[in-house]
Simulated scan of single mutants.
Amino acid sequence: MNIPNLLTLLRIILTPVLVIFLMQGSYSKALIVFVVSGLSDGLDGFLARTLKQQTKLGAYLDPIADKALLTSSFLTLAILGALPGWLTVIVISRDCIILLGLAILSFMSISFEIRPAFISKVTTMFQLLTVLMVLMVLGLTGGGEYTGMYLIYWVTALVTILSGLVYLIRGIRLINRSQ
């Protein structure tokens, strides 16, 4: 166990804390937890690279921590009516489709390397930014609907769909090559 992996575990542990704060309407506290989680995400990657402490465990835990944080945030905020349900469906559906694709490749005994596409990193950034913006509106202003938020919703939806298509195309190519 090293510092980057401990930071990733911290992010996983903070996810239910974030959900509890959201459910209690403690939006300022939720914002703080989300910011700490986001900073720990950047810090764990930076430390893993600079300290040469990249591990197989970290390679698995980091995306799990990201997905746990984002899925929990989107789902909870949608249930609370603070985030559009349609956007949450797009975000979670993309992840489910990717997992289904990985399962199909495994069942077909097709070897593959899990490498995030550039668009996937952009997608994660926009999804994090979307949650951050919603939490800022809730935590700093007490709520309300801002027209400017719809732009970030649509951009997030677009990059999420595009990244899902990139992974779908990658999966189809792997299947076609194996036959």
Rank of each mutant, 00 (worst) to 15 (best):
S37R: 05
L165M: 04
T8L: 11
I90Q: 00
G25D: 02
T141C: 04
S93G: 14
A78S: 14
D62C: 04
D44G: 09
L132T: 12
S28K: 14
S109H: 15
A78P: 04
P4I: 01
D66N: 05
G58K: 05
V19W: 05
R173C: 00
T147D: 11
G38P: 09
L138W: 09
P16A: 06
Y146Q: 05
L140M: 15
P4Y: 02
L162Y: 14
V33R: 09
L57I: 03
L140W: 13
L80F: 03
I90D: 02
L7Q: 12
T123V: 01
Y60R: 09
A48P: 11
G42C: 10
T156D: 05
V33H: 08
V159N: 11
V137C: 02
I172F: 10
L80A: 07
A103C: 12
G144Q: 07
I3M: 12
F74L: 10
K29Q: 13
W154Q: 09
T130R: 03
I64D: 08
S93D: 06
V166W: 01
G148M: 10
P16Y: 03
L99W: 13
I161Y: 02
I64N: 07
L18N: 12
L10M: 14
Y167F: 03
V155E: 06
R115V: 14
A117G: 02
L129W: 13
S111Q: 15
I79V: 14
L51I: 07
A48I: 11
T88M: 13
I3D: 08
D41W: 08
I172N: 08
A117N: 02
L83T: 01
A68Q: 11
M136P: 08
M23N: 07
I119K: 03
L80K: 07
I90K: 00
L69H: 09
S28H: 07
Y60G: 04
K67R: 12
T88G: 14
L80Y: 00
V36E: 07
I175Q: 08
L22T: 03
G171F: 02
N2P: 09
V89T: 11
N2V: 10
A103I: 13
V134H: 05
L132C: 08
S28D: 12
L102A: 15
F118C: 04
G171K: 06
T156E: 04
F107N: 11
T147C: 03
G45E: 06
L87S: 00
Y153G: 07
L7K: 10
F74K: 14
T8R: 05
A48H: 13
I92D: 04
T160W: 07
S120H: 01
L80I: 08
V36S: 07
F126I: 06
F112Q: 05
T160D: 06
M23P: 00
A157F: 07
W86Q: 08
M133Q: 14
L129H: 09
I172G: 06
I3L: 15
E145T: 11
F46K: 10
N176L: 14
P63H: 12
S111L: 11
L140E: 12
L151W: 14
L129I: 07
I97D: 01
T130M: 13
G58W: 02
S93I: 02
L100A: 15
L75P: 01
L22S: 03
A59W: 11
T71Q: 05
K52P: 09
I114A: 15
L14V: 06
V122L: 15
V36D: 09
I152T: 08
A103Q: 05
R177M: 04
F126A: 11
L99N: 12
L132D: 03
K121S: 07
G81S: 03
